[in-house]
């Protein structure tokens, strides 16, 4: 595969952005949720009849005549997959640049940078990382399963750099397929604007839930779009196709706000229902803040491990 200089430049940009962003973040350890045969002591637990006597702390018994069981945590690798929605609707946006003047104002631009940063961060953390692109066009790769190694990371960056938004994601089907490919007890970050009927694609989250996958939905939105921040009436159309709609933003803004609220509530409750986490991410929010909120807050809450 021959690399286009423009593509290479974009990879470099993505890489640099991801690296800068990653290094600016506070790093922390993540631990397995599985408690059992492990290396590092976790805590004590009162002995319960039937517990394995091999873990009985004899010293404590000798000192205090109490039966306690020692518990340990295991340090493991966590396969991580970043899923990026590159449907046509992601190719729109107003003024959000995530704090980077050179960043594309579209939701896709923000999504690609966010994905690259996540991949880099997780790679630096020693986790196997993978990438799944939904819709879009021109991508070098559309599905890269989680692996370790620099070359694999470079492949992920190349996929991100070559991808262009377009077409329809068909979230319901594609998420079902991705869910079928993910490993059990892995981590999945889904970056999408979710602009398909939630009732059609939210049920696909069950595929992740069945594998006990820790799904985190980065619900990407453009604040200008969600507030209908336009002055004049216009014929609005979707890049994915469909009929034009003549809308006067001033007259419809109030009703639009109600619709957005209903829609967010619908998506949030759908994700939570399948055990995922809902992280709304506006494109006007600096990327650092978004990533910190998306990842580090999760670590701080102890939801990983």
């Amino acid at each position: 595969m021959g690399w286009d200089p423009a593509v290479l430049a974009r990879i470099r940009h993505l890489h640099l952005r991801a690296r800068v962003l990653t290094e600016s973040l506070m790093m922390g350890e993540h631990r397995s949720r599985r408690v059992g045969q492990a290396v590092e002591f976790a805590d004590y637990q009162e002995y319960q009849p039937g517990a394995d006597l091999r873990h009985l702390d004899w010293k404590v018994l000798a000192r205090s005549d109490r039966l306690v069981i020692k518990r340990f945590v295991t340090e493991t690798q966590l396969p991580c997959t970043v899923v990026v929605d590159l449907s046509g609707d992601m190719d729109t946006g107003t003024t959000g640049r995530g704090g980077y003047p050179d960043l594309d104002t579209s939701k896709a631009g923000y999504a690609l940078t966010l994905a690259a940063t996540l991949l880099f961060f997780l790679h630096r953390h020693g986790e196997p990382v993978g990438l799944e692109l939904l819709a879009g066009q021109g991508a070098a790769y559309t599905s890269l399963p989680p692996r370790t190694g620099k070359n694999h990371l470079q492949q992920c960056f190349a996929a991100l750099a070559t991808a262009r938004p377009g077409g329809r994601a068909n979230l319901g089907q594609t998420l079902l397929a991705v869910g079928g490919r993910t490993r059990r007890r892995s981590w999945v970050g889904l970056i999408t604007d979710g602009m398909e009927e939630p009732s059609e694609w939210l049920p696909a989250m069950s595929a992740f839930a069945r594998r006990k996958t820790d799904v985190r939905l980065f619900h990407l939105f453009d604040r200008g779009e969600w507030t209908l921040d336009f002055k004049d009436a216009a014929l609005f159309y979707s890049p994915e196709g469909g009929e034009d709609l003549a809308v006067d933003p001033g007259g419809a803004r109030e009703a639009f706000a109600e619709v957005v609220d209903d829609y967010v509530s619908e998506v949030r409750s759908g994700i939570v229902r399948f055990g995922g986490r809902y992280v709304p991410v506006g494109t006007d929010v600096p990327l650092e803040d978004a990533i910190r909120r998306a990842i580090l807050d999760g670590v701080a809450e102890g939801t990983w491990a």
Binding site: D91, D193, E196, E225, F236, G242, L245
Partner: peptide
């Protein structure tokens, strides 16, 4: 008679806009 605006604008949240139109 209906007023039809001339400008076309790509919009990434048509799903929501269609819902608004139905409601209105």
């Amino acid at each position: 008679a209906r007023q039809t605006p001339r400008e076309r604008r790509a919009f990434g949240a048509m799903l929501l806009l269609e819902r608004v139109v139905k409601r209105l």
